[in-house]
Structures are given as C-alpha cells and as structure tokens.
Nucleic acid binder design. Structure first.
Lengths: 225, 225
DNA sequence: TCTTGTTGTAAATCTGTGTTAAACAGGAAT
DNA sequence: ATTCCTGTTTAACACAGATTTACAACAAGA
C-alpha cells in the first residue's frame, strides 16, 4: 500500500509518516498543494490524506484538480475542528471521507483502509482511446473535455467495440449483442450506427477510432497511431 | 453497532437495553456518570445515550470530560420535559442531539442511527446539486433558502437519484428501490413523479437537475453546467 | 361527514431515435 | 472497362418512449 500525505505542518506530517511507515505502508509526503498534485498524478498511490488548510492553494482545489484529471484515488481530508464546515465543501469537491484534527492515528488508519478497500468499487471504470473516454457507469462519452450526446444504441455499439479493443467484431456478433433476439440479417442498421458514431466521436476524421475490415467487421485499435 | 446507555433509573434503563438488544445492537449500560466515562473511554462504542439528570455528577459533566479526552462518539442526551432548558447546556458541552422524556423507542433508534451514519462521514449528510440541497437526516430538501414540500415518494425518488449522482438509473431500478414488492411494470408512475419533481425543484427549467437518457433512464449530473 | 393532499391510472400529445430504403463510392474480379 | 459486391452516406418516416394533463381512488384530519 502506498499513500500520499499532503500536509504543511511539519511535525504532524512526520508523525503520520512514521506511523504508517511502521505499519508497512509506503508513504509519500508533500508539503504543498502543488507538490501533492504532481505526486498524486505521477506516482501509483492507493490513497491520499489531504489537509484542507494548505498554504499555496487549498486542499479543496487540489482535490478538484485531481478529479478533473480523472484520478480517482480515494482521498481523506483533514480539517481543523474550528473549521469543520469546510468538510462539506471538501466532500463536494470529490473527497471520500474526512477527519477532524486532532485525531487518533488508529482511526486514520482504519478509515484509510476502509476507503482503499472500497475504492475498487468506487472508481468508475473508464475505457479510453486517445481523446475519447467512455465511462461505463455514467454511461457517457467524453471527447476531450466535452460530453457527447450519444443515443442508446450508438452508446451500446461503441461500448461493445471498446470493451473488445483490438478485436475484430463482425456485424453478426455486434447485432447479437445489441439486440435481444436474433434480428433480420439483411438490414444495414449496424452500418448506419457506425456511420453516425464516427461522425460524432471523430468529427475531423483524423483519429480513426473505428477501422473497417472488409468482409470481416470493425475494430477499435489498441492505440491511436 | 455497539451503544452505551448511561441512565440511573433502572426500569427505563432495562427497557432501553431490551429494545436495542432485540434490534441486534450490542448494549453497554452504566448507572452512574463515573461508570459511563470509564466505559465510553475503554470500549469501542458507536454511540452513547446519556441521561442529563444523573446522581453523582451530571451528564453534562460526563460529556465535557469525554470531549476533553477527544472521544468523538455521537452522544444523544435525554432530558426530563420539566427541565428541557438543560438541553442547550448539553449541546454546548458537545452532545449531538437530544430527546425529551418520555419518548418513543423508535424515535430514539432513528435519531441514533442518523447520528451514527453522520459520524461515519461516509454517507454524506447533505447531498448538493447547485441550489438544491437534500438533507438525508432531516429528509428535507432546500431550494436556495426555502424548504420544498416534497411528498414521501417524490423525496424517495430524488434521494435515490442524488445518492447515485452521475450514474444512469433505469426506471426498473428506480421502481425496485422505491417500492417494496415488484410493481406493475406497465405503469408510468415513475415518469409522473419525475415530472412533478422537476416542476418543484427546478420551476424555471434552468438547472436541469434530472437528465433524461432515452431508453436508458434518468441521471443527476455530477455538476450543474 | 366533508376537506385536503397524495398516489396511481389513463389518455392525449410531443419528440427523438431506430429503422428503412435508396443512392453513392470504390475495390476486386472478370 | 464493366460488372459485381460490400460498405458508406443521406434523407424520410413511423413509432416507442417520454411528457403532460386530468382525474379517480384513497387515506388522514378536521
């Protein structure tokens, strides 16, 4: 387990670090929000502890930035008792739990473990291809930063293709998985949906997210070239 | 769940103990403030019920001592109707809620559960979307500053959607979670409730707190646009 | 009893989406 | 070239699904 602690008070910071190091955790420490953002982005951490009252930019801003970058690591925020109202703001920004200072380290550990355990379920699984991101829980597709308005069937087609990235999917397979019962074979519905999809997810025609393999089917390449 | 009851009247004490034991709680009992302080300090309790009128030192003193030791269990105080003024003192000392004797056990249970949920911090007590705030404990909804009068079912629908913010909730799932038994599938109740809700929580039609995804369901977006 | 408010049903209306069909494009085979 | 074949694109349409409205059924309170 690797955790990141973002906290400006040095004494508290070191105490936390010691405590968790003793328990066998790998601990990264950042004293500023800026450093924290960098570390959370670059290192494969399992959870983060963030103090809301940071000197450079607030912990809340840090959380917002992380969530914006789609980094879904569980975050626990620390707040001073006198400013416990901030916790609401923090939770709104995307934190998963909070603790009021001062606290017992055992409690911090317990909460963090709970979060880490839970985090597998929390993070929305996202399928990516270049600029295109498909969130299977929210059932929405982002192209860069903007939401795409896909219809139900457009979405189903894209989801199936992206779930089987790199594989060639025949039109027969596609129809089978998209419609409940078997379906009139001599229809060109699939082609139509593919067409509409391409227009929406790749308006410039540069990314080529869906390849055509004549006589065989369609494929989403593993990586955009 | 493990709760501590600090109460000197033996009859009442046993009744409470029985009631919660039946409901599957572990119950510790103390007849004096001193015992209560010891138990609250040493045992891993999830909540405490404290009678203000204790013989040795007042319940208020008990709460003060606990808070001084940084023990943060949620505490609910009981006061006699004739001395309801004491509740203020108790809340100032660090209690989280109060109940006036005599009371219904169901109410006590509901309040305690609310406190426990809130103290866990995991279930956010207030769900927000723009101007809309839904308090899951008080079970009320604010639009800006004014309370909205939602009916029971309207509230249930909104709560479920907001608890699953960002997710697409199909009408089938919604019915399953709102009605106990399975329900006539070919009814349009859900649509009707959604309509009524929208009219109440977004009278101008500007916020768009509930999106429709044709053929898939409804969704409360993570953030208002 | 009457009143008031909530919930569910039914019917009318509206809208977006899936579907169809037909025209078009471009390889491959002859 | 020409024909055939397969996939692409476009436009038009019909209808499922969503919204709205009105009302009946029912319970709770006065």
């Amino acid at each position: 387990m690797r955790i990141l602690v973002v906290e400006d008070e040095n004494i508290l910071c070191q105490q936390i670090q010691h405590f968790f190091a003793d328990k066998g955790y790998a601990v990264d420490v950042a004293n500023t929000g800026k450093d924290g953002l960098f570390m959370a982005t670059e290192y494969p951490i399992d959870a983060a502890v963030v103090d809301i009252g940071l000197p450079d930019f607030s912990g809340i801003e840090l959380i917002r930035q992380l969530r914006k970058k789609d980094i879904k690591v569980p975050i626990l925020i620390l707040t001073a008792r006198s400013r416990w109202q901030e916790k609401v703001e923090g939770l709104e920004a995307g934190a998963d739990d909070y603790l009021v200072k001062p606290f017992h380290y055992e409690e911090l550990q317990a909460r963090l473990n709970a979060l880490i355990r839970r985090s597998a379920g929390l993070a929305h699984p996202v399928l990516k291809f270049g600029q295109i991101e498909l969130d299977t829980v929210a059932q929405e597709v982002l192209l860069g930063n903007e939401k795409l308005e896909l219809t139900a069937y457009e979405y189903k087609v894209l989801e199936y293709l992206m779930l089987h990235k790199g594989e060639v999917i025949s039109k027969a397979v596609l129809t089978d998985h998209i419609y409940d019962e078997d379906f009139e074979r001599d229809s060109n519905v699939i082609e139509v949906f593919i067409g509409r999809l391409r227009k929406k997810i790749d308006p410039d025609g540069t990314l080529k997210p869906i390849e055509t393999l004549r006589g065989r089917g369609y494929r989403v390449p593993i990586n955009p070239e």
